[in-house]
Design a protein around this nucleic acid. Sequence first.
DNA 1: GCCGTTTTCGGCCCGACTGTTTTCAGTCG
Length: 574
Amino acid sequence: MKTNEEIAYIFEIISNILEIIGENPFKSRAYRNAAGTIRDMETDLEDLTAKQKLTEIKGVGKDLADKINEYITTGSLTYYDELKAKVPGEFLDLLSIRGIGTKFLSNMFVSHNIRSLKQLDNLLNSEKALGIRGLGNKKINELKTNIAHYKQNIGRINIGIALPLAELLVSEIKRLSPDSRPTIAGSVRRMKETVRNINLLCIKDGKIDITDGLSKLDIISSVSKKEESFAEFRTEKDIEFTLTYCVDSSYGSTLLYLTGSRKHNDKLNKIAADSGFLLNKNGLFRDGIRIAGSNESHIYRELGADYIQPELREDIEEIELSLSGRLPSTVELSDIRGDLHTHSTWSDGRSSVNQMIMAAIEMGYEYIAITDHSPSSKIANGLDIKRLMQKKKEIEEIDSSTDRIKVLMGAEVDIRKDGSLDYPDDILHELDLVIASVHSNFNMSNEDMTRRIIKALKNPLVHILGHPTGRLVGERRAYEVDMDAVIDTAYDLGKALEINSSYKRLDLKDTHVKKAIKKGVELVISTDAHNTNQLSNIRYGVATARRGFATKKDILNTVDVGKITTWLKELKPK
DNA sequence: GCCGTTTTCGGCCCGACTGTTTTCAGTCG
C-alpha cells in the first residue's frame, strides 16, 4: 500500500477515536482534514519528508509533520498505538452504521460503558434504552433496522479496496517468483461489488517458498494456514487472503474452480457430467484421461461453450447463452472514450479543471465533462449562477486552447424535493451537459420519489440521471423508487441513466443495468471523480456494466466526440 | 491541531432534516 494512503487511514482513525473519547472536536477535525488532503495528494509523503517540506501541506503543521515523520522513519506511530489501545476497533467500526455518529458512540462509550456491537444490541433491546437522552421509540427502531443491515455486511470488503490490494499482492508474488504466473481468482475476479476475501492462484515454485516470502511483507500481519498447496494470510487491515498453488497442467481448471461462483461451477460440472466428462479443479477428464486443464477457454470449448468472462459467472443465464453461442460481447474498458461526470475545485473536487483535463488526456479520452455541483449542495460548495458563468468562461477558454480533448461545460444539478431543478431553465440552456441527481430528502415514499425523479427527467434540458438509486454500497440502502417507471421514462424521452463508477456507489447496479438494456435505455459509465486519481475508477463502472450484460452499443460514452456532442445538442430543445 | 494574523489566540464548512425535545442535538451530505 502506498504510504500516503496508510497515513491518511491512520489519521482518519485517530480523528474518530478523538471524537469518541471526547477530545476537542477541532483537534479531531484537524486530523480528518489532513487525512483528506494527504489521500488526494499526488506527491509522495516520503519525498516531502526527505526534503523536510511536510508543513507546506495545507492542514499539516509542526505536530502532524512530526507524526508523519515518525511513521515514515520507524514504521509505526506511538500516539496512534496509544489511542487504539483505548477504543476497540470493532467499536469504531460501528460508525459506518447509518444514524450512528461520533456523538452517539461517544455517549455509549463514556456514559454506558459499551465496547462492542453485542453490548450495543443488548442495550437497545433492553428497557434501559428508552431512558437514555436522545433515544425515543422511533430512533431505537431506526437503529435496530440499520444495525440489522450492517450485520449483513460485516466482514465484506468493497471491491474498490479489495482489487487494488489483490493487484498489489500479485505484483509481490511476481517479484518473489517471476515465473509463477500469479493471478486473481474468486469474487474479486468476478468483480462483485463486495467480497469476503481475496483468492489468488499461482504455480508452485520448486526453489522459492512463496508463502514464507509473503509472510515477511509489511502488509501481511499473519499466516493463519500454511500447507503444501495452500496458504491463508491476514493483511494488516485484517482482510483475509488465500493463495493456492497448482501445477501448469491444471492452471486453467484450478482458476475456473477458484473463480466460481459456486452456482456457476455446479452447473458447469453437471453439464460436464451429463456429457460423460468429469470436471474438477485438476482438469476436465473423459475416461480418466485429461482432455483440458491448463487453460480456461479450452475447458469451456470442450464442453461446447464459448468462453465466459468472469464477471458473468453467477449462474444468471450466462451458461445457457454461451452453450447456444448467444453470449453477448460485453463492453471493454478500452471502449470508453470520455468521462461525462467529474468535479473540480470549483465545487468540492480536489483537482483543478486543468489537472482533470490533463489526466483525461493521459487516459486517452476524447472528451471530458466537468460537472460541478449546484447551489443547494452547500457543503459541496455548489456554484451559484455567477460562479457558474465564471466557470463556463474558464472552460470555454481552455476548450478553445486545445485540440487534444473536447471539454464540455456541465453541471450536476440537484433535483429538489418537488422535482424541480436547482438552476432555472435559461441557465441550464447555457450548459453543454446537464446531469440531474438526488442529494437530499432520501426518505420519501416510493410514489413521491418516483414522481420527483420523473419530473426532473421530463425537463427537456436534462441529459442524464446521476446515480439513479442513491445507494452507498454496504452503507446506505437505495431510496424507495420505482426503477421500472424511471427506466421507462428515460427510454421514452431518450435520456441516459448513469452507471456511477465510484466503488462506493456502483449505481445503477448490475441487475438494474440488465433491466435497462433490456428496455433499450441509453447508459453512460461515469466516474463522478473528485480528483484526478478517481478517473481510473471507471473500471468499476465498466465491470458493473459487464455484469449487467451491457455491450459497447449500450454505452453512450463509447462513441466518438462528434457523436457525443451531437447527442447532447439534439436532446436539448432549440 | 491548524491557520492567520489585530504575532498570541479565537475560530474552525453549513443548512436541512429528524426525532427528540419543550428549545435542541445529532446525523448527513
